[in-house]
């Protein structure tokens, strides 16, 4: 994954916070963590403030502030991971998307985290530097030449939506986000000639 995943950690224990941070650091994931000891107002406000992709929450720090209602729009994009210990029944954890037992050992914690992130599509099995497919090279060529998504769709007889999917995959595979960055890549890799395009 290229973009840093925003993570919110709701947990009062310093040791658990640092522990989770260190465990996440062992995965092939780039992330940014915001931390709060507890949810002071309501959970929706906290989520709106930090806009995380994943929340790791201590069940005890959350239970009185949130009854499990997920109707607010802000929940749509969030993966809620409840952290529990042996004193909590799994029944209580049903409100979370995923659960993480904090009493597991190092290997177990890391593999639980890997499973959770893979299921959410945040950790891929593939290596980061896959080669571009033939179609992706074509799309890249047109992007570098300055065509819009619509124009590319017309030329290749595919939908604009498919063009956007290709572009996402190109960016993911190459680690290049901007059009001018992709243009430089295309020139360096002889996908286009520098004479073909007025680069900057």
């Amino acid at each position: 994954m290229i973009e840093a995943v925003k993570i919110l950690l709701i947990e009062p224990s310093y040791i658990i916070k640092e522990g989770l941070r260190s465990a996440l650091g062992r995965l092939n994931l780039s992330f940014r963590i915001d931390e709060v000891d507890e949810v002071k107002e309501n959970l929706v406000l906290t989520l709106e403030k930090f806009t995380p992709r994943i929340v790791f929450a201590n069940h005890r720090a959350l239970e009185t502030k949130w009854a499990g209602n997920r109707s607010a729009a802000v929940f749509d994009e969030v993966l809620l991971v409840g952290m529990y210990n042996e004193k909590v029944t799994l029944f209580e954890m049903a409100r979370y998307d995923e659960v993480l037992c904090i009493e597991e050992n190092k290997q177990q914690i890391i593999s639980s985290l890997q499973n959770i992130l893979k299921k959410a599509g945040l950790l891929s099995n593939e290596s980061e530097t896959e080669n571009l497919s033939e179609r992706e090279r074509e799309v890249l060529r047109f992007v570098a030449l300055g065509l819009t998504n619509n124009e590319i769709a017309e030329r290749l007889f595919i939908s604009t939506f498919t063009v956007m999917t290709h572009r996402k995959n190109i960016t993911r595979k190459l680690g290049i986000k901007t059009v001018s960055g992709l243009t430089v890549y295309a020139i360096l890799n002889k996908i286009i000639e520098s004479g073909e395009v007025n680069v900057f």
Partner: peptide, 14 residues
């Protein structure tokens, strides 16, 4: 994003 791209171009594609 642009800074990010510049780094990656230098690291991977020069």
């Amino acid at each position: 994003s642009k800074l990010f791209d510049l780094k990656n171009i230098i690291i991977k594609y020069i």
